[in-house]
């Protein structure tokens, strides 16, 4: 299992999850150019991908991204209003099996990598262009991964009402 970090609405918190590494075998084969991930790694990645509706494999953590592309992606997800309860991030720098394995798993050479409802969506370039076109918002909305807006709206409405009432007086 890989450790995940979760987003909170306005900042990020890191939950406590398990992190069990089995790197001995892999380390001894590190010189090989092509490396195939173990069944164990694939299973762990399967679990990670399915651990939340929105899953990001990144360098560093949401609160401290270790790469500009991961940082940009986290920012975009935050701006879109991804619900922290529906989000999990995995730091590939914490686990060399994960770092290699995820590239093989999704047949994608770079990190970050975004999965929504178990489906690979893309890397930073794709996420950025999808956020600009509105596709990302749609996708996250369909996946019911966004923070519910109603409460916020009510609060805002009340405030503006009070304000306008005060102005009337």
């Amino acid at each position: 299992m890989f450790r995940s970090s979760l987003l909170t609405v306005r900042g990020f918190i890191r939950p406590t999850t398990i992190n069990k590494q089995t790197t001995n075998l892999i380390n001894s084969n590190r010189s090989l150019l092509v490396r195939f991930m173990s069944d164990e790694t694939r299973k762990a990645i399967d679990e990670a991908v399915g651990s939340a509706p929105v899953v990001l494999f990144m360098k560093g953590t949401p609160e401290a991204p270790a790469c500009g592309f991961s940082r940009a992606t986290i920012q975009i997800l935050g701006q879109q209003g991804v619900d922290p309860v529906k989000f999990a991030a995995y730091n590939v720098l914490e686990d060399s099996d994960l770092r290699q394995g995820i590239k093989e798993y999704s047949e994608w050479p770079t990190i970050p990598q975004l999965f929504v409802k178990g489906e690979f969506i893309g890397g930073c370039d794709i996420i950025m262009s999808m956020s600009q076109s509105g596709e990302l918002a749609e996708l996250l909305d369909d996946a019911e991964a966004l923070v519910p807006e109603e409460e916020d709206e009510i609060e805002v409405d009340e405030q503006t009402e009070k304000k306008s009432e005060a102005e009337k007086k």
């Binding site: 047949e107 994608w108 050479p109 770079t110 690979f120 969506i121 893309g122 890397g123 370039d125 794709i126 262009s129 999808m130």
Partner: peptide, 18 residues
């Protein structure tokens, strides 16, 4: 689509990107 396009590029430039 975007994903297919990027995969096309990634595959064509596999060694270089690696």
């Amino acid at each position: 689509n975007k994903l297919m396009r990027h995969r096309l590029v990634n595959n064509a430039l596999k060694q270089e990107i690696g």
